[in-house]
């Protein structure tokens, strides 16, 4: 894929995060260019999710600087609101709103945050439901869908807000094996469409195929970042080799 703009859309500088005494992020620095696809991997508890959740302020960082699309992520609630409009997030547990239909799930934020008319929001919602391949489920409730379908609705819901950046927090980990592919197909499609993507995932095939950069994290730090070819073929760090051997040969 081609990087359409060289602009730095995410800048993190020396980001620290503590949970009480536990140091979850130890001086995290990362710059992401617009249109880049980044896959973050690492053992559980290494701070992968914590990191991407700081980017839209689901977690608060205590030290360091995060600038997203030129907006400083601070305690200013207006900045936070603006950043959340630019950054979409897809969760491991889908987190669809069970009391709303699929269509209502997708149109909720456009109507109440972007203040679009219902007609316009529904038109765009249907466009995205078509894109993720489930327009026929629009009037069902999340509880009536399979896990893969739910996750695709969650992706459509995120996209309907027309974000520039997409965060995926282990989007396939809660899915049955036969449903992983349908979600990964959608993610591949989005990566090719030029979205800036940060994905925490264990899908190494996906990382190899679409990532521009793979980041390996352990105990709150970036251990290694590399192109997928180099990362999987000849990693620099011993810690990376160890991790790869564990997940690739089980």
């Amino acid at each position: 894929m081609t990087v359409t703009s060289a602009q730095d859309i995410i800048i993190c500088h020396d980001v620290h995060k503590w949970y009480g005494d536990f140091h979850a992020l130890k001086g995290f620095s990362l710059t992401v260019k617009s249109g880049e696809v980044i896959v973050i991997i690492g053992p559980s508890g290494s701070g992968k999710s914590t990191f991407i959740r700081t980017l839209n302020r689901l977690e608060e960082h205590q030290q360091g600087e995060i600038i997203i699309d030129g907006i400083l992520l601070s305690h200013d609630v207006r900045n936070i609101a603006e950043i959340r409009r630019e950054v979409g997030m897809v969760f491991q547990q889908f987190n669809l709103f069970p009391h709303l239909t699929v269509l209502e799930n997708v149109t909720l934020a456009p109507i109440h945050v972007r203040k679009w008319s219902r007609e316009r929001a529904e038109e765009i919602a249907m466009k995205w439901l078509n894109r993720v391949g489930i327009p026929e489920q629009a009037n069902k409730y999340p509880g009536q869908l399979s896990g893969g379908q739910q996750q695709r609705v969650a992706i459509a819901r995120t996209l309907a807000m027309e974000p520039k950046i997409l965060l995926f927090d282990e989007p396939t980990s809660a899915l049955d094996p036969e449903m992983i592919k349908e979600v990964l197909d959608v993610m591949r499609d989005l990566a090719k469409a030029g979205y800036t993507i940060l994905a925490v995932t264990h899908e190494m095939g996906f990382a190899r195929e679409v990532a521009d950069r793979v980041i390996f994290m352990a105990s709150g730090e970036i251990v290694e970042q590399n192109t997928p070819q180099n990362f999987f073929a000849n990693p620099n760090e011993e810690r990376t080799r160890q991790f790869l051997s564990q997940i690739l040969h089980h």
């Binding site: 689901l58 609101a81 959340r84 709103f97 109440h112 819901r157």
Partner: peptide
């Protein structure tokens, strides 16, 4: 569930 609030916040509500 907490995830509901997180999803709402992430969507900018």
């Amino acid at each position: 569930p907490k995830g509901q609030s997180e999803a709402a916040r992430a969507l900018g509500l």
